[in-house]
């Protein structure tokens, strides 16, 4: 170890402590524009870069586990993460990117085989509120967004965000006009709703009504092409996940949902049609179709069969063809029931 730090007299913990002092200074003297602050600022940026190179390595060396652990431990021993997040808007672009990468990396660092970042965040959940609010500020949205996505790798943190009022805000964020920010928000939204299976299943079961009402009306029926396309893909991912089977059964038993899906099938966008089919097939395959579902399918039987007959995807896909054959079979079978 001694040899390793010969060229760098400061230990990783030293760098963290120095960074923290500088952050406190910058935070307190936010308005002064004197040269001293400028100097401190430059020093801070340099320190953040050094933190990054300890965690990620640099062109000369790979990261060293022991150094990373030291850094992580010192970082979370005090409020460095809070200071860094709060001061981020004051940093220049390069330092913001470095800080984001540092925070992202720290979420995965284990100290004595514990993710201490998770413990810290659980005790400081208001930081997540701060990160989420970043979507309202174009300047910092991409940095806070990237940090947020790393933080919700921790299941307990994802649960906190899912169950917070913030979930409703995502329906706005993912339709922001700025593509970079909107797509970052929708990546986070997707991560929240797909990453931690049991937590997601629990969330959807408990919040079924408002969530799918919003999802249907604001996302699947959005006038915005990209919103619809991303939403229908996410819906398929959610409903086709085994852990969400209870939610799926509930979803495919609703006439309103079926109508939305059938409208999406009629879209001129092939991408949307295909994703819609993957959800539509669940309605058709449901062995306990409610009467209202059966009746819609029967009423539109000819049209549906004609549609499915012509419905092809560009590349060969056996699974798709098999699914389609199954759906056709189910819909054809409905006729017999009806006439008998």
């Amino acid at each position: 170890m001694k040899g390793l730090f010969k060229s760098k007299p400061r230990t990783p913990a030293d760098i963290v402590r120095h960074t923290r002092e500088l952050l406190i200074y910058v935070d307190l003297n936010s308005n002064s524009r004197d040269t001293k602050r400028e100097e401190k600022m430059a020093e801070l940026c340099k320190n953040i870069r050094e933190l990054k190179s300890v965690l990620y390595g640099n062109s000369e060396s790979e990261p060293v586990a022991e150094a990373c652990a030291q850094l992580t431990q010192e970082f979370f021993r005090e409020n460095t993460l809070r200071l860094l997040i709060v001061c981020l808007p004051k940093l220049n672009l390069e330092a913001r990117k470095d800080a984001t990468q540092v925070v992202a990396n720290l979420q995965r660092q284990q100290v004595h085989s514990r993710l201490i970042a998770s413990d810290y965040l659980e005790a400081n959940k208001d930081l997540l509120d701060l990160l989420i609010s970043g979507y309202e500020d174009m300047d910092i949205a991409l940095h806070y967004g990237a940090m947020l996505r790393e933080c919700i790798r921790h299941q307990s943190i994802a649960r906190y965000v899912l169950e917070s009022e913030h979930m409703k805000k995502f329906f706005d964020y993912i339709q922001l006009p700025n593509f970079d920010i909107a797509s970052d928000a929708s990546a986070t939204f997707k991560e929240l709703l797909t990453r931690h299976k049991s937590t997601v299943a629990e969330f959807l079961a408990r919040n079924y009504d408002w969530f799918f009402t919003e999802f249907n009306s604001r996302l699947l029926s959005s006038p915005n092409y990209i919103t619809r396309r991303q939403a229908i893909k996410l819906l398929g991912d959610m409903l086709l996940d085994r852990s969400n089977s209870a939610v799926m059964i509930r979803y495919v038993s609703s006439k309103d949902n079926l109508m939305i899906l059938m409208n999406l099938l009629r879209e001129s966008s092939k991408n949307i049609q295909i994703e819609a089919f993957h959800v539509f097939k669940l309605f058709a395959a449901n062995q306990n179709k409610p009467l209202e579902i059966t009746s819609i399918l029967v009423t539109n039987k000819d049209k549906l069969l004609r549609f499915l007959k012509d419905f092809k995807i560009d590349k060969e896909d056996e699974q798709f063809e098999a699914d389609k054959a199954q759906v056709v079979k189910e819909i054809q079978a409905l006729k017999k029931e009806n006439t008998s």
Binding site: D180, S183, D184, A187, Y225, R229, Q230, S269
Partner: peptide, 17 residues
């Protein structure tokens, strides 16, 4: 043209970012 582009939207997002 996002409909004709074969890239998936996640890729487009990453690149734009």
């Amino acid at each position: 043209d996002l409909e004709r582009s074969r890239a998936n939207l996640d890729d487009v997002r990453r690149e734009a970012k």
